[in-house]
Design a protein around this nucleic acid. Structure first.
Length: 884
DNA sequence: GGCCTCACG
DNA sequence: ACGTACGTGAGGCCA
């Protein structure tokens, strides 16, 4: 028997939207409803083994119901923006799978579903109607099954209704079901003052009389009196409800059964959609074999070279090319195992290390190829910095890093690999590294002689080459070309230099520090167990919470999703009264220092006695760099014991550290960007920015500002930079929201230009979808469009913070490049070894100390000229601890 | 792999 | 009413 599945589009999309947790792809598109819809659809198709499928959607235009009853609002609630944007997407996805979309002006999707279902049944077809709306139960029939998906705890269960199931659950037949609904009135049209009839009463009446008309004819018998009264006075409303709720079975829908035949859902077009939406589990359904021609067409032009002569020929040819894409392929140990090279649609190669064809040869050839070129942006690659570790290039403007370009164009993504670039800049879908190799890297695959490793490499070279012009165009169009060429590209070299320099660690001292910690930890551990009266895992927030707040019955503060909060701010409040809490806080501090720093850092010391961490350029949303393996940007400093660890960071013999940091750079940027005259004036001469803020805001002479006033002003200044909120400030200062708000208002009264500036940033963010730094760096803020209050408020804070934090990051990058270039230009041996957002640590040879200090201060102060000066504090010392 | 906690600017 | 300050990375626990 032929089988037809009909889906109520909006209803299922709606259900999926609320049932599936928030989900966005890397473009920031919300995708949860589409994802949920597809999962429900695939599940049903599999269960039913259906051969025909169609989806009905409402149109936004008014229907006959609106015309007939001008007050009719329909059942549609205003859709949140996150769902609204998924409706057209859903339709596109369905169309890409060849599934017909049924819509009809003047009718709702229900009417289409009803008409098609009944007529198909009449043609001897078995029908399933899938909807989240129980009103559709009226359509249940011998050969029409109504399927209602229910999502609870992430699991989707589908409830099925044939007429007997409706009868069992509601005690009435499907057609009588309309009458029950009519008596109850649509809750959304409930009219104030009209007594409503509940489900029980309505069901009883219809069970007895069969229809509202028959109820009307027996009005005098109707019980309870309340219902009798309601119907006597407002029978017309019930009649109207019935008419509205009755699904039309004869609407002029244009449905051709054969068009709904499921031929092949897994089309290439659909595959592209799944790829773009990043639906991994759905992609898995697509058989790679079915994924058609486009990629394979390219792959036919991929060549693997394994012989020396072949490689030489290609390098010769590449020399003549106008533009080149390349990628040195590295294995886990950072050894070169191959090179991807592309210089035309038909010139795509993966050269594999083999015999005489060594990694050193490839790196060296690639280096010469670049060095012999003059044309800026004529050689593209994905992620230059890693490759600089095996190909020691001097700073050049010949190379174009596509990953960096991709980052500037959208800093919110977590990867900028070739498939991302292909999708985002070329609108192309290509198999990702993971598609081709699973967990393996291109390097290890190529090394192992896996052909797919070469395919992956070819894609890297090809996409780098192909995406470069488009990326350049996009950078121009977004006003970030200068930022790219003058800041981000040169920065790659500065970061590379810093990583190569590394920072020296006194291993013995570090070990001694760790031993001291471990000794204290062991002692404290015993004291805690004694105090608690039992042993437990102090590191487990779960166990700790149970001990403190259940067994010992301490008053608990906040709760987390999983239990009691044992965070420091909660414990801090309990510490004065309960000695065990102080011990736990101390224990936490010590174990943190030991595991993350003492033991953690030790594991990264290399043979040269130094740590060569990685500084990432494409991670943060604001333009800052980040530091990993290890993170050298969060070495303790605030607490005395932690700060001690900085004593193990030492310069090499004959050198000292010079540490230079910007003072209050973000507030100075605020003064400049907001153009607030008073703030600019204040910061021009200010030694102590927080004190002068206090003086002006509280109308107190500078010398009479109290420590408390200064502390409050400082907190407000922080708040302004973070995107002020009365709540945040009140938490920080432990004052009421009202008091916090009063401070904020006072601040804005004092500096009205700041208020206007911040308001304008939010406005700008809402209008453009992004905000920018002084140098044109963009931060997209999709949250500003959210229908969720929290999300939107977050977006507003981000709109206020990102231009400030981002501008500071830009300035530091400019300074860093200038310092690095100058050290090299003057042939000095001193090197930048760390950057910590507003601070540079320079390993300085003693004979260069005076020159380097001056240079450092000069380059940092004058990285950019603002309407207020940038102040830099520099200190020298024989350890990082002493240089602070 | 998600959550909690905590280190930094 | 919602339930928060902005930006990061790492280690430990636990399902």
């Amino acid at each position: 028997m032929e089988k037809l599945v009909l889906i109520d589009g909006h209803s299922i999309l709606n259900r999926a939207f609320y049932g599936v947790p928030e989900l966005t792809n890397s473009e920031g598109l919300h995708t949860n409803a589409v994802y949920g819809f597809l999962n429900i659809m695939f599940k049903i198709l599999e269960e039913e083994q259906a051969d025909h499928l169609a989806v009905a959607f409402d149109l936004s235009a008014p229907t006959f119901r609106h015309e007939k009853y001008p007050d009719y609002k329909g059942t549609r609630k205003p859709m949140p923006e996150e769902l609204r944007e998924q409706v057209p997407l859903m339709k596109e996805v369905l169309t890409s799978m060849g599934i017909p979309i049924l819509s009809l002006a003047g009718y709702e999707a229900d009417d289409i579903l009803g008409t098609v279902a009944k007529s198909s049944q009449a043609d001897g077809i078995e029908v399933s109607v899938v909807s989240g709306d129980r009103d559709l139960l009226q359509l249940a029939d011998t050969h029409i099954k109504i399927r209602i998906p229910k999502t609870s705890r992430g699991k989707t269960e589908i409830h099925d209704y044939y007429p007997e199931d409706v009868k069992r659950e509601y005690q009435v037949t499907p057609t009588e079901f309309i009458d029950v609904k009519a008596l109850m009135g649509d809750s959304s049209d409930n009219i104030p003052g009209v007594p409503s009839i509940g489900e029980k009463t309505a069901t009883n009446l219809i069970v007895t009389y069969g229809s509202i008309e028959n109820v009307r004819d027996h009005l005098e018998e109707v019980r309870p009196p309340r219902a009798q009264k309601a119907l006597t006075e407002h029978y017309d409303l019930a009649e109207m409800s019935k008419d509205l709720a009755t699904i039309r079975l004869d609407c002029p829908v244009d449905f051709v059964y054969d068009d709904a035949r499921i031929e092949n859902l897994y089309t290439q077009e659909a595959y592209h959609y799944m790829k773009r939406l990043e639906f991994k589990s759905i992609l898995a359904r697509f058989d790679a074999v079915q994924i058609g021609a486009e990629e394979n067409q390219i792959e036919e032009k991929f060549w693997t070279i394994e012989d020396f002569a072949g490689a030489e020929t290609i390098f010769e040819k590449a020399e003549q090319a106008r533009t080149i894409g390349f990628e040195l392929i590295l294995d886990q140990k950072k050894a070169v195992v191959g090179l991807a090279l592309c210089f035309g649609e038909d010139e795509i190669y993966a050269i594999r290390v083999e015999g005489f064809l060594t990694g050193a040869y490839l790196a060296d050839k690639m280096k010469s190829l670049i060095e012999n070129r003059k044309e800026p942006d004529s050689v593209a690659t994905i992620g230059l910095k890693d490759q600089l570790k095996v190909m020691d290039l001097e700073e050049t403007n010949v190379v174009f890093d596509t990953a960096i370009a991709g980052y500037l164009l959208n800093p919110l993504k977590d990867t900028y690999e070739y498939d991302d670039l292909a999708r985002d800049s070329l609108g192309m879908t290509v198999p990702s590294r993971a598609d081709l190799l699973g967990k393996k890297s291109a390097g290890s695959a190529m090394c192992a002689g896996d052909e797919k490793g070469c395919t992956c490499a070819c894609y890297m070279g090809y996409i780098a080459w192909k995406s470069m012009p488009k990326l350049l165009e996009n950078l121009q169009n977004t006003g970030m070309e200068k930022l790219f060429h003058e800041v981000e590209m040169p920065l790659i070299f500065s970061l590379d230099h810093m990583e190569k320099a590394g920072v020296r660690i006194d291993r013995a001292q570090l070990e001694a520090y760790g031993d001291r910690l471990k000794e204290k930890i062991a002692k404290l551990e015993q004291e805690i167990y004694a105090s608690a009266g039992e042993t437990f895992n102090i590191n487990s927030p779960k166990q700790l919470g149970e001990i403190l707040f259940e067994r010992m019955e301490l008053p608990h503060g906040k709760k987390t999703k999983t239990g009691y909060s044992t965070a420091a701010d909660v414990l801090e409040k309990l510490a004065p009264e309960y000695p065990i809490v102080r011990m736990i806080l101390d224990y936490r501090q010590l174990t943190k220092l030991n595991s993350t720093y003492a033991e953690g850092l030790a594991g990264f010391i290399q043979e040269d006695g130094r740590i060569h961490g990685t500084f990432n350029q494409t991670i943060t949303a604001t333009g800052r760099i980040s530091s990993t393996e290890p993170n050298l940007q969060n070495i303790p400093v605030r607490m005395e014991l932690g700060r001690e660890i900085r004593k193990v960071f030492v310069p090499e013999d004959g050198a000292v550290f010079v540490d230079a940091d910007y003072s209050q750079i973000e507030l100075r940027i605020l003064a400049h960007m907001s153009k607030d005259d008073r703030l600019i004036e204040a910061y021009r001469e200010a030694q102590d920015i927080h004190a002068i803020t206090a003086s002006q805001v509280f109308h107190t002479p500078l010398e009479e500002v109290t420590p408390l006033q200064r502390r409050n002003a400082k907190a407000v200044n922080f708040g302004i930079v973070y995107g002020i909120s009365a709540f945040g400030l009140s938490e920080d200062l432990s004052i009421s929201r009202k008091e916090a708000l009063a401070y904020i208002n006072k601040y804005f009264e004092t500096y009205p230009g700041v208020k206007t500036f911040l308001d304008d940033l939010v406005k700008e963010g809402k209008e453009q979808g992004y905000v920018t730094t002084l140098f044109g760096r963009r931060r997209p803020i999709p949250e500003l469009k959210s229908s969720n209050f929290m999300q939107r408020a977050f977006g507003e804070r981000v709109a206020m913070n990102s231009p400030i934090q981002g501008t500071a990051a830009d300035i530091m990058k400019i300074a860093m490049i200038a310092v690095d270039r100058e050290l090299r230009a003057r042939k000095l041996r001193s090197r930048i070894v760390l950057q910590v957002h507003d601070e540079l640590l320079v390993e300085t040879f003693v004979d260069e100390q005076e020159e380097v200090t001056a240079l450092l201060e000069e380059k940092m102060r004058h990285a950019v000229e603002l309407s207020v000066s940038l102040e830099v504090e520099a200190h020298a010392g024989t350890t990082w601890f002493d240089a602070k």
